[in-house]
C-alpha cells in the first residue's frame, strides 16, 4: 500500500519534450504561466490551449496520466467555477429562480474562463514533471538560481539544491523502512486497520517514532560519509552531467517566441 505512493511523477518515454534541456523547460513553464495569467480574453486563452495541447501530444505521455493529475485538483476547480458563477456583475440570466438569479452572463463567462485557466496551469506543470526526472529538475533549479551567488548567497543555492536532491533520494528508502517497521509492529499484534480516527492516529505512534529515530540516524551517517569524501559545499565542484543548449532547445525558444507574440497581439487587438 505504501508502494503506491509516487513522488516526482516522471514518465519514461522517448519524446522530444523529454529531450529539451530542463532549464529551458522550467523557464518556459514560468513564462507560459505568466502568459496565461495576463491573457484577458478567450482568444488569447485558446491560443495557449492549442499550444499546450500540442505539447501534451508531443510528450508521448498517455493522456489519462494528465487526467489523473487533473482529478486531484478537481475540487479547487469546481469551487472556483461556482464562486465566480455567482459573483458576477450585470443583468441576471434567470431573474425568476431564487438562488440562480445571481447568475449573470459575466459570471458565467468568468467562471468558464477561470476554470480553463486553472486547467491549463495544471497541464503545463504536469508536462514539466512528467517529462523531467526529479534529479534533472533540482539540477536545473540550481543552475537557474546560480546568479544569486553574486548577491552574496554563495552557498545557499547549492545547499538548497543538495537538500532537495537528498530528500528525493531518501523517499524510497524511507518508504521501505516504514514498511519494515509496520511489519515488525504488526508481528507484535499492532492493529493498524481497524478502529476510529483517534485509535488509528494512536496506532501510528509505534511506526512514526522508530521511523523518525532512524531518519535522524541516517542523516548523521550520511553527513559523516559526505565529510569523509571531503564534501565542503558547492565551491570548485565539477559536474558529471554538463548541460548544454542544443539545436532543439533553440528551436523550442523560437517557437515559444512566436507563440508569445501571438498571445500578446490577441490581447492588444481584442
Amino acid at each position: 500500500m505504501l508502494k503506491d505512493i509516487t513522488f516526482g511523477q516522471y514518465f519514461e518515454s522517448a519524446s522530444i519534450i523529454h529531450k529539451i534541456d530542463p532549464r529551458i523547460k522550467i523557464v518556459l513553464m514560468i513564462a507560459i504561466i505568466v502568459l496565461i495569467f495576463t491573457s484577458g480574453n478567450f482568444f488569447a486563452l485558446f491560443l495557449s490551449t492549442f499550444f499546450i495541447i500540442t505539447t501534451l501530444l508531443l510528450s508521448k505521455v498517455p493522456f489519462k496520466m494528465y487526467i489523473k493529475n487533473m482529478k486531484a485538483i478537481l475540487p479547487v476547480l469546481i469551487f472556483t467555477a461556482i464562486i465566480n458563477l455567482f459573483y458576477g456583475e450585470g443583468a441576471s440570466l434567470f431573474p425568476d429562480i431564487p438562488v440562480l438569479s445571481h447568475i449573470t452572463f459575466e459570471g458565467l463567462y468568468r467562471s468558464v474562463f477561470m476554470a480553463l485557466r486553472i486547467l491549463l496551469l495544471i497541464f503545463v506543470s504536469s508536462v514539466l514533471t512528467y517529462t523531467t526526472t526529479p534529479n534533472d529538475l533540482t539540477d536545473a533549479i540550481e543552475r537557474l538560481l546560480s546568479p544569486l551567488k553574486y548577491l552574496g548567497l554563495k552557498n545557499a543555492v547549492h545547499t538548497l539544491a543538495m537538500m532537495m536532491t537528498i530528500a528525493l533520494r531518501f523517499i524510497p528508502t524511507l518508504i521501505e523502512e516504514a514498511e519494515k517497521i509496520m511489519n515488525a509492529q504488526k508481528a507484535r499484534g499492532a492493529d493498524l486497520e481497524s478502529g476510529g480516527l483517534v485509535e488509528r492516529v494512536k496506532a501510528l505512534i509505534p511506526i512514526l517514532i522508530p521511523l523518525l529515530i532512524s531518519s535522524v540516524r541516517r542523516a548523521s551517517e550520511l553527513a559523516e560519509a559526505m565529510e569523509c569524501r571531503c564534501y565542503n559545499g558547492g565551491e570548485g565542484k565539477t559536474r558529471l552531467k554538463q548541460m548544454h543548449l542544443k539545436k532543439l532547445d533553440y528551436l523550442c525558444l523560437i517557437v515559444f517566441v512566436f507563440y508569445s507574440f501571438a498571445v500578446i497581439l490577441t490581447n492588444i487587438i481584442f
Binding site: A184, I209, P210
Partner: peptide
C-alpha cells in the same frame, strides 16, 4: 507464531 525481524532494536518506540 512470533516473528523477530532483522535488527529488531530499530522497532523500539
Amino acid at each position: 507464531i512470533g516473528l523477530v525481524f532483522q535488527y529488531p532494536e530499530y522497532q523500539l518506540f
